[in-house]
Amino acid sequence: MAGRRRARGSPVPGLWLLLASLFVSLVACGGRPATDGAKADVQRVLDRRAAAVLGHDESAYAATGTAAGYAAVRAVPLAAWSYRVTAVHRDGDSATADAELSYRVDGYDRAPVIANRTLSLTRDGDGQWSVISEKPAEKTGEQLWDQGTVSVVRGTHSLVLGVGQSGERLRSFADLADDAVPAVSAAWGTDWAGRVVVLVPNSLEGMAGLLGSPASSYRGIAAVTTGETGGGSKAPADRVIVNPDAYGMLGRVGRQVVLTHETTHVATRAHTNAATPLWLSEGYADWVGYRDTGRTPAEAAPELQHAVTGGTVPAALPTDGDFGFSGDASRLATAYEGGWLACRMIAARWGEVKLDAFYRAVGEYKERPGAVEGALKSVLGTSLPRFTADWRAYLRDQLA
C-alpha cells in the first residue's frame, strides 16, 4: 500500500514462537491459508474470458462458463478488456469474486474505464472454476451491455451505443452529435478530442441504472454527461447518457440544443473542476447550445421571464444547490436560465473570446473560494457585486 512503512527492529522471540505454534496447529487441524490458490485460479478463468471478448471468440467465451452476456457486448468496438480479481469469497465448490473490469472503447477512450463487478462461479469435479453470472457490484452503476444487446452506429465525430433502439433512431443521435461537435469547436476552440460517445438506453430506468441512481432523480432531464472534472490525458472519454423518455418529447431544435449542450461539457471538462460554479458550467453549455439557434431570451428562459415580469428578480446568481435534479422543476429551470443569461451577457458585453477566457481562468483555481472573484477581476475587470448588479439589470432589460 502506498505510503505505508514497514516497522524496523528485532523480532520478539516469544512472539515468533507463538506465531509458529499457531501456524503448526492450523495446518495440523486441516486449516487452509487464505491464499489457497482459488484467487489465482479465478483470475486465470477471467483472463481467458477477457481474451475471448477481445478476440470475438464466442466458443472460447462459453468455455469459461455461461455464454450469457457475450452477444450483448459483441458489437462494442473495444481496444482493451481485462479483469483484476480483488477478492474471492469461497464456500466449498461455489465462490463469489469481486473484480475490477477495465476496458477502453477503441478510438475514443484515452484511458481505461474501471467498473467494479461481482461474479458468481462454480467448481467442477476436476477442480476447474467457471462463471455462472456477472453483474455490477453493489451500489455501482450498470454498463450498457448489462441492459441488453448493444447496437452501434458510427458518425463522423461520434459513436452511438444503444439498447432496445432502432438503427434509424441511433443514426439520428449520431447526426445530431456530428452537428454538435463542430458547433462546440467553433465556440470553444479545438483543444479537445473533437468526438463524443453517446449512450442511448431503452428508458428512463435504463438511464438511471447506468448512473447508479433512482429514476426519480432524472425524470424530465433529457441527457447528462459523465466524466472526470479536470480530466487530462489520463482520463477516459466522457459519456453523454440520454433519457429517451424526455428526449422524445423535444422538437428538432430542442434535441440539437441538448446534444450541443452535453458535447460542450465534454469539450470543457479539462478546464472544469471544484472551483467552477454550476451557473458557469451549465450556463456556458447552454450558451453554446443556443448560440446559433436564434432563440430569444423570452423564448429560451420562460421560467425566469415569468419571475421577472412578476416583479421578482433573483438577488444573486444561482447556487449549486439550485441545480439539483430531484428538487423543484421551476427552481431548476430558473437556475439554468439564469446561468445561460449570465454567460450571454458576458459574450454580449465583453465578447465571446473573453467569455472563454473567463471560463478557463476560473478553472485555473483549485478551490471555489476566490475563483470567480479572481477571474472576474483579471479577465473582465469587474467585481462579483458589480457583475451581479449588471446581471440583474440585464435580466430586466431582456425579459421584462
Rank of each mutant, 00 (worst) to 15 (best):
A267C: 02
W350E: 07
S203M: 06
D322N: 09
N273Y: 11
D191V: 03
E337P: 00
G167T: 13
S120R: 15
V224S: 04
P318S: 07
L78A: 06
A187Y: 12
V242Q: 05
V313H: 05
G209F: 09
R84E: 15
E205F: 11
P77G: 07
V24Y: 08
H89W: 13
A285L: 07
L355R: 01
K377H: 11
P11E: 04
P13G: 07
P314G: 06
G125K: 07
H89N: 15
G9Q: 02
A80H: 11
R44T: 14
L399N: 06
P112A: 10
S10Y: 09
G338D: 05
S216W: 06
P136M: 03
D175F: 02
D175K: 05
V258R: 00
A235Q: 00
A193W: 01
D93L: 13
L159Y: 01
A274C: 01
L17Y: 10
L380H: 07
W391A: 01
Y218W: 15
E168V: 12
R104Y: 05
R392T: 05
S130E: 10
G155V: 09
S216C: 03
A67E: 12
G289H: 03
T35K: 13
F358E: 03
G69H: 04
H261R: 11
S94T: 15
G338H: 08
G31S: 08
P182K: 09
E299S: 11
Y83L: 08
V12C: 12
Q43W: 05
